[in-house]
Design a binder for these strands. Structure first.
Lengths: 129, 129
DNA sequence: CTTGACCTTCCCGTGACTGGAACCCCCATT
DNA sequence: AATGGGGGTTCCAGTCACGGGAAGGTCAAG
């Protein structure tokens, strides 16, 4: 299978697939003409990577998770550890964003949004309590 | 005032302040020895930028907001527009992250986290429904 | 034989900084 | 006068996970 087909099948852009090869996440074969040739196991890996990335795992996490996936003797504790660390990061980010949303939401609500210059948003940014 | 003092006063790293000068957000004077000299209005601007960045505004948004801040004839509608667009982005990101958290949370809960290899997290990433 | 859709590599750009090297400046102490 | 330390300066490279685009090779159809 060529990269275009794999892209269609996995939903990953061809650029991304090439990048994943570059950094050693997937190792397709090569045809005589230099084209990449993907086996079904490569497609499977790429789907795995796509799902892991969609859950927000970093590339390095993906590498770790792939290694665990392929290690039949893994301990699920190792997987869970990676996932829980990532979950904690997600939750931290959600908390940050919620704080921003609250502050910004109040400011937006307080702003008249008309053609006059008075603006609580700018007042807040300018340091007015 | 030198950059170290400004850094202490604004909480922004000196590197960041230099970067902000680089991209034209702030224009400190220069002493004979080449040192940057910050006036109180520069410090004020930097505080403004720090607060805007803390609310997650992009640098380009900050540039826009600063311009509005300094424009006495602004319409608050223009400020509100920028803020609302950013708020929408924040909310979209929160929604994404909440979805990730929910999925990942369930998977983590379902994972035994022991020394056996069976792992619902990897099963899900591997494409098992 | 040509067209057009693929494929290849390579290099640059993204956003908002951060780290580090190499060097200058000023003040205080020995 | 030399030295040491704590400022400051510039510039270059790296981050993360790609995306855009150029320049060129390959393949199947008309």
């Amino acid at each position: 299978m060529n990269i275009g087909d794999v892209s269609a099948r996995t939903g990953l852009p061809a650029k991304t697939i090439r990048y994943y090869e570059d950094i050693g996440l997937v190792k397709p074969l090569r045809d005589n003409n230099g084209y990449r040739v993907f086996r079904s196991q490569d497609v499977h890996k790429l789907n795995f990577l796509g799902r892991a990335r969609a859950l927000g795992f970093t590339i390095e996490d993906c590498r770790t998770l792939m290694a665990l996936y392929e290690d039949e003797t893994r301990a699920s504790a190792d997987v869970k550890k990676v996932a829980r660390a990532h979950l904690a990061q997600i939750e931290a980010k959600i908390a940050d964003l919620n704080a921003m949303r609250d502050t910004l939401g109040h400011l937006v609500d307080a702003c008249a949004g008309d053609d006059r210059p008075d603006c609580p948003i700018l007042q807040d940014l300018g340091g007015n309590p």
